[in-house]
């Protein structure tokens, strides 16, 4: 099914992406092709169960889960090593366009 402009705009918001009107139009047309391609699964011959969980791996007993034992956290300098931190915080300054 084709993607309406409203639908596309909603997806863009959910994805936190912005497109210029031309870009959006171009994208939307390409998306139509891709969605048509995805739609082919609805022609799939095979039936199936309703259980969609656990497609690749088996379930584990809760006993195999991680034990509640403290592991040392990393130093603040490491945590902030990819940003200009401030007083130990991540931060986003307001800046005017």
């Amino acid at each position: 099914m084709a993607l309406s402009k409203e639908d596309f705009d909603k997806l863009a918001v959910l994805s936190r992406l912005r497109f210029s009107p031309e870009e959006a139009e171009e994208f939307r047309n390409e998306m139509d092709d891709i969605i048509a391609f995805a739609d082919t699964i609805n022609n799939a011959v095979s039936g199936g169960t309703d259980d969609i969980k656990n497609t690749s791996v088996n379930a584990v007993a809760y006993t195999a889960l991680r034990e509640d034992a403290v592991r040392e956290s990393l130093p603040n300098e490491k945590i902030l090593s990819n940003v200009d931190g401030s007083r130990g915080f991540f931060n986003v300054k307001r800046c005017v366009k």
């Binding site: 509640d68 403290v70 040392e72 956290s73 603040n76 945590i79 931190g85 130990g88």
Partner: peptide, 27 residues
Amino acid sequence: ATKTKIFCGCTTEFGGAPNTHCCPVCT
């Protein structure tokens, strides 16, 4: 009131200097 976070071994202790109870998983 667990000792560690739900998906990593960092402490759940209240307080602490900012971003000191952190690791790759919880950030």
